[in-house]
């Protein structure tokens, strides 16, 4: 079914390793952006403190 590219990958274990490594690095980058933006938002809101007080803080910027 995937004979074509398997032949290429099997013939070259080094390429196989590189493919796996690149994939994992990219997946980690994506995950970092996902979690990073949520963490950033959490930190931003905890820095401001909750409640109505910070709405004026936001407004006065």
């Amino acid at each position: 079914m995937i004979a074509g590219q398997m032949r290429v990958l099997d013939s070259d274990p080094e390429r196989r390793r590189r493919v796996r490594r690149t994939t994992l690095v990219l997946a980690c980058v994506a995950l970092a952006f996902y979690i990073g933006f949520i963490v950033m938002s959490v930190m931003r809101s905890s820095r401001q403190g909750g409640g109505a007080a910070d709405t004026t803080a936001a407004a006065s910027r």
């Binding site: 994506a30 952006f33 996902y34 990073g36 938002s41």
Partner: peptide
């Protein structure tokens, strides 16, 4: 895509 799509996912998760 790899930098932008996860940010959208983060926004809608929130």
């Amino acid at each position: 895509l790899i930098a932008a799509m996860p940010v959208l996912a983060g926004a809608v998760t929130m």
